[in-house]
Computed example of a mutant assay.
Amino acid sequence: MSKAYLTIDDGPTTITRQMIDYLTSKNITPILFFYGQQMEKHFEEGVYALQQGAVIGNHSYSHPCFNDITFDECVSEIEQQEEWMTRLHEVAGVERQYKLFRFPYGAKGGKNKVLIQDYLRENGFNRIDDRAVEFDGYKNEQMNLDIDVFWTFDFAEYQLHNADEFTYESIIERIHDSNPQNGAVLLEENTNHIILLHDHENTEALIPEYYKILIDYVMEQGVEFVNPKFVI
């Protein structure tokens, strides 16, 4: 059996509420990484998720690739979204306990990476408690030192509507891959993971309740979802 934190990117959307209801029924506390342009359209869904116990993190305002913009633009993206994060917690009536950040696309800023990490550190962003994550690739890339929240396994289900050759069976193959080129072996015994899923209406249109299908599947395969912990 392996253990995992569940993280979900790119919300909120029209399906966020039903995702949260499902996760609540399974006693799974997710970390949802929201970005501002989505919050403008689906703010009430974000409020609902927060009130139901989800942890909400900053995923920038407009979801750009941070490798392709200047340091000042990176900071602006983070700070614009911080304004939305403050408003979200105020409207929901939920105290914000943690400041979390995830880069869109996992792109850590290229030549500006160190500057952005320093910015996150100096502005009180928290690290996820990933001390139990022991994969060489994760440590070799210094994910265990960076302030932002990365992942060890990505379902990559967003590719269902981006690549014709990528199918549901492709996701199942990723789950069972014993020697992945990227990430880590999800089903390896006594391992710990940070799993990435996405809140995408396009995927829902292709496979209704895809999030439920995939989470149920990995749980049947021995993955135990645990409550996220953070470094203050």
Rank of each mutant, 00 (worst) to 15 (best):
Glu157Thr: 11
Val133Cys: 00
Gly57Asn: 10
His198Lys: 00
Leu115Phe: 07
Phe225Ile: 04
Pro228Asp: 07
Ile194Val: 14
Lys212Gln: 08
Asp130Ile: 00
Ala205Asp: 14
Gln97Asn: 13
Glu189Ser: 04
Gln159His: 06
Ile20Asn: 04
Ser178Asn: 12
Leu6Ile: 08
Tyr119Trp: 11
Ile15Ala: 12
Asp130Asn: 09
Leu100Arg: 03
Ser170Leu: 05
Ile31Cys: 05
Leu186Met: 06
Met85Gln: 08
Asn27His: 10
Ala163Arg: 15
Arg131Gly: 09
Glu79Gly: 09
Gly183Pro: 08
Ile128Glu: 10
Glu169Trp: 07
Val47Asp: 02
Leu50Gln: 13
Glu209Met: 10
Ile172Phe: 04
Asn67Pro: 07
Val114Phe: 11
Ile172Gln: 00
Tyr211Asn: 13
Leu120Ser: 03
Gly222Phe: 01
Glu169Arg: 13
Phe225Gly: 02
Tyr61Leu: 10
Thr29Gln: 14
Lys212Met: 14
Ser170Pro: 05
Val91Thr: 03
Lys212Leu: 07
Leu197Thr: 06
Thr29Leu: 07
Ala54Met: 08
Asp136Val: 13
Asn192Trp: 12
Asp118Trp: 03
Met1Asp: 11
Ile171His: 01
Phe43Arg: 02
Val91Ile: 06
Phe103Ile: 03
Phe225Asp: 02
Lys229Glu: 15
Gln51Trp: 01
Leu197Arg: 04
Leu160Ile: 12
Asn58Gly: 06
Val231Thr: 13
Val133Thr: 02
Val114Gly: 11
His176Thr: 07
Asp199Ala: 13
Arg127Glu: 07
Tyr48Phe: 15
Val91Trp: 01
Glu220Val: 01
Asp199His: 07
His176Phe: 09
Val91Cys: 02
Asn162Thr: 15
Ile213Thr: 15
Asp9Glu: 05
Lys139Asp: 00
Lys41Trp: 01
Asn123Lys: 03
Phe33Arg: 01
Asp118Glu: 14
Glu169Ser: 14
Leu50Ile: 11
Glu188Trp: 04
Phe153Leu: 03
Ala107Lys: 12
Gly36Ile: 12
Leu32Trp: 04
Asn112Thr: 12
Leu50His: 08
Gln159Thr: 05
Tyr105Trp: 15
Asp146Tyr: 11
Glu204Thr: 08
Gly53Gln: 06
Leu187Ala: 02
Glu165Ser: 15
Glu165Val: 14
Asn58Asp: 12
Glu157His: 08
Leu32Phe: 08
Phe225Pro: 03
Ile15Cys: 11
Glu77Trp: 05
Ala132Arg: 13
Tyr217Pro: 10
Asn27Gly: 11
Cys74Glu: 15
Trp151Gly: 06
Thr16Cys: 11
Glu40His: 06
Glu209Ala: 12
